[in-house]
Design a protein around this nucleic acid. Structure first.
Length: 112
DNA sequence: CCCCTGACGGTCG
DNA sequence: CCGACCGCCAGGG
């Protein structure tokens, strides 16, 4: 939970990265299982945690809530043909190697 | 102790 | 971009 709190406003990261930061890179699924335990007012920004692919594959109801919460932070959420939500990791992804060594800027996008 | 399941990850077609 | 497969570790029955 403490790791998740480090995720800055308007940015998103993946379960796998959270797991990696806590020393368990193979426990990505456990991160999700732990997050589901949280309350709506737990103060933990669970909304900023999505799959590494940038696709929100949770329950529709929860997904819609997460989408609204993310858009409220200025995160752009697109919808695929199959109805699955998607976030551009290239623009909103946040993957620091260390918690203290957080990013120094928010616009290092690679033009391709 | 065995088996199934899971807010997942990565690769292949 | 989307769907199918296999691998991963921990928890519950």
């Amino acid at each position: 939970y403490e790791i998740v709190r480090q995720v800055p406003y308007g940015r998103v990261t993946s379960y796998g990265h959270i797991a990696k930061l806590m020393g368990k890179p193979r426990n990505s699924r456990l991160v999700g299982q732990a997050l589901k335990f949280l309350s709506a007012d737990s103060g933990v920004p669970w909304q900023r945690i999505i799959s590494s692919s940038g696709t929100i594959v949770i329950s529709s109801t929860g997904a819609q809530r997460q989408r609204a919460a993310l858009e409220a932070e200025g995160v752009e959420v697109t919808v695929g043909r199959t109805g699955n939500l998607h976030v551009s990791m290239r623009d909103y992804g946040w993957f620091p190697d260390s918690l203290e060594a957080d990013d120094a800027d928010a616009g290092e996008e690679e033009e391709e």
